[in-house]
Amino acid sequence: MIMHVTSILASFVSPVDIGTTPQSLLLALPLIAVIAVVYKATKLEEFTFASFVKESAILFGSISVFMILAAVGLYLVMQFTVG
């Protein structure tokens, strides 16, 4: 038991190795999910599981699509200006 607790605590004092790779951008997705869920938890007046999941999923998709469009836009600007 103490070994388990120690190993869990030890994982919070040494960073995880994450390279500067395109795949590391996927770490944005859990954070977007948290933002969508917390925002909807503060906004919804009537709380049913189905409506909450639906609203959160729509917000999650909206943020994700907007971020992808922003990335594509920035990429195109860089291509046309810097080359």
Binding site: F12, V16, P30, V34, V37, V38, A41, F52
Partner: peptide, 22 residues
């Protein structure tokens, strides 16, 4: 319900952040 969702979501984000970067 809001309290439980907020508690779980925000603590998850904190712990993932601390786990990734210490």
């Amino acid at each position: 319900a809001s309290a439980a969702i907020i508690f779980g979501s925000i603590l998850s984000a904190i712990f993932v952040g601390l786990w990734i970067s210490s």
